[in-house]
């Protein structure tokens, strides 16, 4: 293997990592507020389709990104209204959202399938920094969206641990009754968290259709949304660990087409199961660890909250 293949691999890891991290970060925010949203795959597809459409119409990738975020938010709002405001089951509502998002993307995106790419995100040229061997070609050449994802990750970490807003959001996800007694708006916090999650999933979709695999076709999300759900667990609900997980799982995806180049005799398909199996493993370890202490998962996740049922 030569240097170029290795650099190609690192770039692919960053790209898949960015895709997964954006979506996983959104799911993390929703789950930290106590709402499981299994609709990531649907929001991602819908956002990706919307971004591609906006790209074709406007030719501006940033407008497309905003459109994708709005599309993701709109879908997430359905989940928020059904499961948070009206209090229906989060699992059913989230799964239905995935079905709805995938189907809406397929339905509305029917005529986009054959369309040429209107616009796309490109690698960022940071001048002399990008000329540094290795680091310049990979880290300092990655797209603005990767930097954005990283910045959002740091911002999430900061908000969670260093601000009253984050404290309130985490309290809502741990014990809604406690948060309510402290005068915090439980429903509003959860709705906003779910919608932010939707925006990030939509942006992840935009990254997919405007950079990673420019174009639109049904099934282009290929289960990446489920990996994002898995990542939140794999990262034990921490923004930093989720980033590591995103790079790891992104790395596994990036390796798939390259295995043969590296002379490894394992089927890439079998390799692609690893993220899911690793997540199951982590879930089991977390539950063994939480025998004598509270679980790493937000305690109120999946639970409907209504004030009268205290």
């Amino acid at each position: 293997m030569n240097e170029q293949t290795l650099i190609g691999l690192v770039i692919a890891i960053i790209e898949f990592g960015t895709l997964l991290y954006l979506a996983a970060l959104g799911e993390l925010i929703a789950e930290k507020a106590g709402v499981l949203n299994l609709g990531v795959e649907g929001m991602m597809a819908f956002g990706g389709m919307a971004a591609f459409w906006a790209g074709v119409e406007t030719g501006n990738p940033w407008i497309a990104l905003v459109v994708a975020a709005i599309a993701g938010t709109a879908l997430a709002a359905v989940h928020a209204v059904i499961s948070v405001v009206l209090g229906a089951d989060q699992v059913v509502s989230g799964l239905a959202l995935t079905i709805l998002g995938l189907a809406m993307a397929a339905f509305l995106g029917k005529d986009l399938v054959s369309k040429p790419v209107g616009t796309q995100f490109r690698e960022l040229d940071l001048g002399p920094l990008s000329d540094i061997p290795w680091i310049g070609e990979t880290l300092f050449s990655m797209s603005a969206l990767s930097w954005l994802a990283l910045a959002l990750g740091v911002a999430t970490w900061f908000v969670f641990t260093r601000t009253s807003t984050g404290l309130a959001l985490r309290a809502v996800g741990e014990s809604a009754a406690t948060a309510d007694a402290a005068g915090l708006p439980v429903v509003r916090t959860r709705v906003i968290a779910v919608m932010i999650g939707g925006a990030l999933a939509g942006m992840s979709g935009a990254y997919l259709t405007l950079l990673l695999a420019p174009g639109w076709s049904e099934g282009t999300t290929a289960g990446r949304g489920w990996i994002a759900v898995a990542l939140v667990i794999f990262g034990a609900w921490r923004p930093g660990r989720v980033l590591i997980g995103a790079l790891l799982f992104g790395g596994l995806i990036a390796l798939e087409p390259r295995l043969q180049t590296f002379g490894v005799e394992i089927s890439p398909i079998l390799l692609s199961m690893l993220p899911y199996l690793l997540t199951i493993g982590v879930l089991i370890l977390l539950s063994i660890r939480s025998r004598n202490r509270p679980s790493a998962a937000p305690a109120a996740i999946g639970q409907t909250w209504r004030r009268e049922e205290r």
């Binding site: 404290l167 985490r170 741990e174 402290a182 305690a299």
Partner: peptide, 19 residues
């Protein structure tokens, strides 16, 4: 909130914007 520290519980809902 069981997983919060004593301080986090005490200031919850009445904390400065940046902690």
């Amino acid at each position: 909130v069981p997983t919060f520290s004593v301080t986090e519980n005490v200031v919850l809902g009445a904390a400065p914007r940046v902690l």
